Amino acid sequence: MEYTVRVHTTIDDVDERWDDLMTVAQAPVFYRRPFLRAFEKHPLHPVLRTAYLVVEDASGRAHAALPAYLQRDVDPMRVLADHHPHAVGRTVLLSHAWHCYDTVLPVRPGPDSGSAALHAVTALRDLASQWDARLCGVVNADADGPLDPLLTDAGFSGVDIDVGWGMTLDHFEGFEDYLANGLKRKSRYNLTHDLRLADEAGVSVHRTDAENADLDGFVELARATAAKFDNSDYYQRGLFQDFVLALGDCVQVAEYYVGDRMIASALTLTDDTRLHYWAVGYAQEDTPGYSPFYVAFAQVMREAWASGLDWVELGRRNPTFKRRYGLQPRSLRAYFADVVPELE
């Protein structure tokens, strides 16, 4: 099949063919129009230029697509500094944004899907050259996914950078079944103990949309929580609230209160198959005997089974807790290719 690659600079320049492709490819929420539009309007990290690469057939039907971001001095996980120091301080073209922990290459299923995917990867490298990037690549991709052989064969070198965690929801009938049969005795005791003490303390949960949530309160809790990882600016004041508001219906907020004091707040995102436990902030003192983090985790897991979706995604970090509570790890890999700009 003959393909043409078109490069768009805003998501609203791409019509409903983008949405159709993301649906048939079962792409994560990070590839859906609300997330991409929100990131354009309120980029959570600096972006010099944005591109949406769309691989089309002769009829204009989209068969593969990638968002890509030209950036400089954006390296929140020290991937460039540790593995490609020659690119530090230079422009790089990457897919996806660093706040996406589930990078894929959305491809229309079919016998020619491999060719469409290769066209997208080749176009990414060509665009990096046109934009004088020193490096191009894909970050936070599943090391065991279909991108690994595709990118390796295309000359991209891969390196493991983090671990993502999630759970197939059909392993258990619901939260109570998971609690009774999916956890070891000590883990089950710790979780039920905290839930009981939280209930005795009068913890209540308020579920709402972003517009009616206390997003300022969320950001302050999240920044304090992220400080443990020296990463508070992952949640930039003002910018992060604006971004979440721009997500619209694909984000939900669960706020946890004792009286009128918010002790935790959790953001979840949804797509066609997954519930994403995307972000959480919680008080780390003045909650005697129980952890608001445990309480929020339990509530999100209840919501995951109630949603009827196939998978709950819990992102990166905190491996000890996630392993203890039966979540399944996957290695996240970054793939890079050097680009020699025409000016060099």
Score class of each variant (00 low, 15 high):
residue 219 V to Q: 04
residue 310 D to T: 07
residue 58 A to D: 14
residue 20 D to F: 06
residue 179 L to M: 10
residue 155 G to A: 06
residue 84 H to A: 15
residue 328 Q to C: 14
residue 176 E to V: 04
residue 3 Y to L: 02
residue 100 C to Q: 05
residue 90 R to C: 02
residue 37 R to E: 10
residue 308 G to L: 10
residue 200 E to C: 00
residue 187 S to F: 06
residue 200 E to I: 00
residue 155 G to S: 13
residue 299 Q to V: 05
residue 14 V to H: 07
residue 270 T to Y: 05
residue 155 G to C: 09
residue 231 N to Q: 06
residue 27 A to T: 15
residue 29 V to Q: 14
residue 315 G to V: 00
residue 167 M to Q: 01
residue 276 H to D: 01
residue 146 P to T: 00
residue 32 R to F: 10
residue 259 G to H: 03
residue 57 D to Y: 06
residue 193 H to S: 09
residue 122 T to W: 02
residue 3 Y to R: 01
residue 168 T to D: 15
residue 26 Q to M: 12
residue 255 E to Y: 13
residue 241 Q to C: 15
residue 48 L to N: 07
residue 151 L to G: 05
residue 277 Y to T: 03
residue 237 R to V: 13
residue 14 V to E: 09
residue 177 D to N: 11
residue 97 A to Q: 12
residue 286 D to L: 00
residue 121 V to S: 02
residue 172 F to V: 04
residue 145 G to E: 14
residue 249 D to L: 05
residue 16 E to F: 06
residue 307 S to K: 04
residue 266 A to H: 07
residue 304 A to V: 07
residue 254 A to P: 02
residue 326 G to F: 14
residue 218 F to W: 01
residue 148 D to Y: 09
residue 113 S to Y: 05
residue 50 T to F: 08
residue 164 G to T: 15
residue 5 V to N: 03
residue 204 S to F: 06
residue 174 G to T: 01
residue 156 F to K: 00
residue 82 D to F: 07
residue 321 F to I: 02
residue 199 D to G: 10
residue 240 F to A: 11
residue 213 A to P: 11
residue 201 A to Q: 05
residue 24 V to F: 02
residue 250 C to I: 14
residue 14 V to R: 11
residue 181 N to M: 03
residue 206 H to M: 05
residue 32 R to D: 02
residue 280 V to T: 06
residue 294 Y to G: 03
residue 158 G to L: 11
residue 175 F to R: 07
residue 16 E to K: 07
residue 41 K to P: 00
residue 188 R to L: 11
residue 72 R to Y: 01
residue 178 Y to R: 02
residue 220 E to M: 15
residue 331 S to H: 00
residue 18 W to A: 03
residue 146 P to E: 05
residue 188 R to F: 09
residue 203 V to D: 03
residue 134 R to G: 13
residue 236 Q to Y: 06
residue 45 H to Q: 08
residue 101 Y to R: 07
residue 302 R to D: 00
residue 203 V to E: 03
residue 70 L to K: 05
residue 307 S to H: 04
residue 74 V to R: 09
residue 228 K to F: 08
residue 103 T to H: 10
residue 56 E to A: 10
residue 101 Y to T: 09
residue 256 Y to H: 10
residue 166 G to W: 01
residue 85 P to Y: 10
residue 4 T to M: 07
residue 211 E to K: 12
residue 293 F to N: 11
residue 178 Y to I: 00
residue 65 A to N: 10
residue 48 L to H: 14
residue 153 D to E: 08
residue 254 A to H: 10
residue 336 F to T: 15
residue 206 H to K: 14
residue 238 G to P: 13
